[in-house]
Each structure stands twice: as C-alpha cells, then as structure tokens.
Design a protein around this nucleic acid. Structure first.
Length: 213
DNA sequence: ACCCAGGTGGCCC
DNA sequence: GGGCCACATGGG
C-alpha cells in the first residue's frame, strides 16, 4: 500500500526531472546551496511578495527595493517601521501592497524581536518550533511558513501549493486537499532530504506553469 | 472585458 | 474542518 504511493511519487518525480529544469529560473536562486544571509533575506521577502502573485511582478517589486537601497535587512525593517508608505509604494507591482507591507512588518518585527535580526541565529532554531511561531504571525500561513523553512533555511519540510494539489490529482497520488494531510503524504514517502524537497517542489511549480497538469 | 497568478485572514456554518 | 470573500497589480 505505502509502497505503491512511494512508487507513484518517485515515478512522477523522475518524469518532471526528465522534462523540466530549474536552471534559468527564479528557482535556481531559491535552490542554491550555502545561501548567504542576504540571499536568505531576499527569499523571505519574496516568499511574502509572491503570495497569489505572478513572479514577474515580484521581481519588479524587488528591483524597486534594490534601487532605493532598501534591500538590506536592518534598513528594510527600519523603513517598515518609520516610512511604511515608502515600502507600500515600492512593492506596489506585487499587488496586495497594503496587506503585504503589514505582513512584512509583522514577520520582521518577530525576526528582530526573537533573533535580533540574525537569520543565522534564526536558522539554528528547532524548525518545528520555528514553524509554530511563524504560523502565529498575521500574514504567514502554512505555505509561506514552509517556503521560508525549506528555501531560506534548508529545513526538510515539503511545501504544498495549488500546483502540488493539481499534481497529486494528475498522478493519482491522492484526492486529499487538506494542507497537512497532503504534506504528510510527501514527507512519509520521501526521505527527509531538503535538497530533494526544494527541487521537487520547484519542478512541480515549473511544470504546473507550463500547463503540464 | 475578463481571467489568472506559487495565499492569507476574517467571518460563517 | 471547509466555503466564501476581500485584498491590488500586470499580463495574456
């Protein structure tokens, strides 16, 4: 029974790997090993900005922040505190600007409160506790929390999104829709390998965008 | 003009 | 737990 699901997941992974590549995409940066503090910071900001939004628009917002020299963690948080209108204006292309500015403030307020703005320190935290804490923040739901854990901090948590839901239906892996139940299906049938989880999820999204399923 | 894009929280049952 | 809605913008 379990073996059968394992085989379906594995075969589907091989198929995606055969047909798609994370090279020349945003995913190459998100999947990079040994990320710098700056890269982790950018992944975290992008994880919020990309909520229900086209990646191109996220890039425009990130470019705006970079041009204004705000894409540095301390500067970013200071600006969120003292001049939120400026951030709202710069992230405008990513949509939901008012909400996302608040979400970003809530998240970085937590990061500075708990870890003095050190992502290195944050990364050493037990990731089950980290996920619990992240989920308490207004603006961080399960997908954003897990994206941060997997892609910024290289923790072995499988990210579920709309493409993943279509993927499991297409390959008849499960009819389940609940986030945690779906996540368990992947995590119980795959080794806890963050490199695999990063690449697998990236391939699912790339394939999904190409209307592969 | 309309639909979609890597979600989340609030409200309701 | 699940269904529905608002939230904003740019591209096809």
């Amino acid at each position: 029974m379990e073996k059968e699901i394992q085989k379906k997941i594995f075969d589907a992974y091989l198929k995606l790997q055969d047909k798609f590549s994370i090279e020349n995409s945003q995913w190459r940066k998100w999947c990079r090993e040994n990320k710098t503090e700056q890269e982790k910071f950018e992944v975290i900001v992008e994880a919020i900005l990309t909520q229900r939004t086209n990646w191109k628009n996220v890039e425009k917002a990130m470019d705006n922040l970079k041009e204004e020299m705000i894409l540095e963690i301390k500067k970013f948080f200071e600006t969120l505190k003292n001049d939120k209108e400026k951030i709202i204006n710069l992230i405008k292309p990513a949509g939901f600007k008012n909400q996302k500015a608040i979400y970003l403030y809530n998240l970085f307020d937590y990061i500075f409160e708990q870890y003095q703005g050190s992502l290195f320190k944050m990364e050493t935290e037990n990731h089950f506790k980290l996920r619990q804490d992240l989920l308490k923040i207004n603006g961080i739901g399960p997908e954003t929390a897990d994206s941060i854990l997997l892609y910024a901090f290289s923790k072995p948590v499988f990210v579920i999104d709309e493409y993943t839901r279509r993927f499991v239906r297409k390959y008849k892996i499960s009819q389940e829709k609940n986030y945690y139940k779906l996540q368990n299906i992947f995590e119980e049938n795959l080794p806890p390998d963050w490199r695999l989880y990063q690449k697998f999820h990236a391939l699912i999204v790339i394939a999904g965008k190409e209307k592969f399923f």
